[in-house]
Amino acid sequence: MSFGSPYFTLPDFTYHKPKTLREALELLEKYGDEAKILAGGVGLIAFMKERLVSPSHVIDIKGIPELKKLEYRKGEGLVIGATVTFSELESYQVIREKYRALYQAVKLASDSIIRNRATLVGNICEAIPWVDGPPPLIAYGAEVEIKSLDKVRRVPVAEFIKGPVEIDLEPGEIVTSIHIPDVPSGARSGFVKFNVGSEFALVNLAAYLSLNEEKKDVRLVYGAISPKPVRALEAEKILSSEGDMRTLIISAAVKASEELEVISDVLASEDFRRHLIKILTMNLLTELVEGG
């Protein structure tokens, strides 16, 4: 019994490097919850060092070609495979152009050396409340594709993340990719992160606005403020109502800062987070409106 986790070494495990998805799934089937998936390793290895997880089997999926997929198809959207790194996303032109919120979140996540290894799928599978990957994905209405030996299913990212370190994934299953719907032309999105004096966000926010004549589609997703990223539905309603966007921003920002459940933790108090929600919402929406 010792205070903290002063560990340099990892617990014992057996390393597997399957060459096909089927092989990986068979290993997962065989070892159940004794197995953990290794992609970038940034989360898993750090968790193992803290002894938060001590799997007996580690399955490295970097050798599986189909998980490297990074592809955009007009009308269908973007597919991001499980081993695609943040750095690869950063240099993918389509993301920079069409998926601004994701692009900005990717650029602001951790540091450039970590981004060379870290994967977006790993980022959402860790389900740590303060990270930057999930809010834009939820704002775009992205889904994860999950495979096991006998079935394939798709779950919206918003539901996939159930809470801190808790995701909708059964033993034997693996997240193979993220699917982001195509964004209509004229839609705008953006991401802000407030993390002065911290690597993690105190509050982060992804916003998506599609202002077609027939229907306003507005999504505001906040991270780091609660056990899992949340949408400010009431604030979205205000922004979707009749009238010039500019005149709605303040009341939406105020609403967002009031309607959500917000936690206090080591990074910030509840009060300060509510304040930041208001300011960041105001800033980001103004920027999006001005940018158009």
Partner: peptide
């Protein structure tokens, strides 16, 4: 030893990575 300080940075196939978060077998 957990990817924050970057002092263990090495070039892996020409790309900087933090070697405290990489398994040797990888």
């Amino acid at each position: 030893w957990r990817g924050e300080c970057g002092l263990c940075t090495v070039l892996l196939n020409g790309e900087p990575v933090k070697s405290c978060l990489v398994l040797a077998v990888e």
